[in-house]
Simulated assay, not measured.
Amino acid sequence: MTAPVLELDEVSFAHRGSGAPAVADVSLSVAAGRSLALVGESGAGKTTLLRLLLGLARPTEGAVRFDGEALRLGDRQLMRRFRRSAQCVFQDPYSSLDPRRRVGSIVAEPLRSLGLATRRTAPPRVAAALERVGLPADAAERYPHEFSGGQRQRVAIARATVCDPRVLLADEPVSALDVTTRVTVVDLLNELKREHGLTLVMVSHDLSVVASLCERTAVLEHGRIVEEGDTGQVLGAPAHPYTARLVASVPRLPGPRG
């Protein structure tokens, strides 16, 4: 069995001044090159888990491990290595890109901040990242407002993958897009997974996107995992009543009337 690249070991997290924990006793792992979805209603703890996996918050209890080593937010060298390996795509392509900067500068940001490229060596890597997500090289000279929502999310994905990370964490990556554009972005993420061996952890409330992208699914209710397993099994034959309610709540088009 492939060793986990990311792991949550009995993790709990409580916001300061809050009584109930946002996340309680969560243990999860995802192997290299595999994909995991975190699903549940608003307030279930999905985004909190993603922040913990990104090293943006410290667990109240338990540990977050990367390649078997516990993340220590105070260890700059360790966290710098982790940042080179794990990048994130955020929900809203309109607010996640700085409108005052050209796309080339936006996509090059991880290369500069992680010391992976110089001003001279960054442009070819930026061009390759833009080409990989289906955008022309001249997109680097344009501003975010010149692109559609789907194209902006492609820019965000190019920024997240320009430094060749091993892990991509995505927070509702298509929820702000129209239905047709969602399909193209989902296809792009599947292509990146397949061709580059990316490990994907995705937060989503859209179960159709989950079914299209993720091999495994963990269902959260009130900060606890109530069901976890193969996506087809979890969504097709849910074992927990909460999961069954989530699946039943998915809107379906009415059939034709005779």
Rank of each mutant, 00 (worst) to 15 (best):
S208Q: 15
L49Y: 01
A244E: 15
G74Q: 11
A122H: 06
H222F: 10
H145K: 14
T243E: 04
A218D: 07
H196G: 12
L169C: 05
L235F: 07
H15E: 10
R166S: 12
G236M: 00
D138E: 14
L207F: 11
R34V: 01
V203R: 11
E41M: 07
G55Y: 03
R245T: 15
G74N: 06
P136I: 03
G115Y: 01
G104K: 03
V11T: 09
L52F: 03
Y143C: 11
D9W: 04
S249T: 13
G150F: 12
E7Y: 13
L56I: 06
Q91C: 03
A244I: 10
D25V: 06
A3R: 14
T121V: 01
R257W: 08
G115V: 08
V209H: 06
R252S: 09
T231K: 11
L200N: 09
E7V: 12
H196V: 08
L49M: 11
A218S: 06
L135D: 05
P173N: 04
V210C: 04
P4E: 10
L169F: 02
L220H: 00
V226S: 02
R132D: 11
R159P: 10
M202Y: 08
P123C: 02
D9S: 05
G229M: 11
L253W: 13
P144I: 01
P123V: 02
V219S: 04
Y242R: 07
A63Q: 14
A108F: 07
R142K: 13
T161H: 02
R142N: 05
K193N: 12
R166N: 08
A32Q: 08
E41K: 03
P238A: 14
R119V: 13
E109C: 13
V107Y: 08
G150E: 02
C88H: 06
M1R: 09
V203M: 07
S249P: 12
E141Q: 14
V201K: 00
L220K: 00
D75S: 02
S18R: 15
L54K: 10
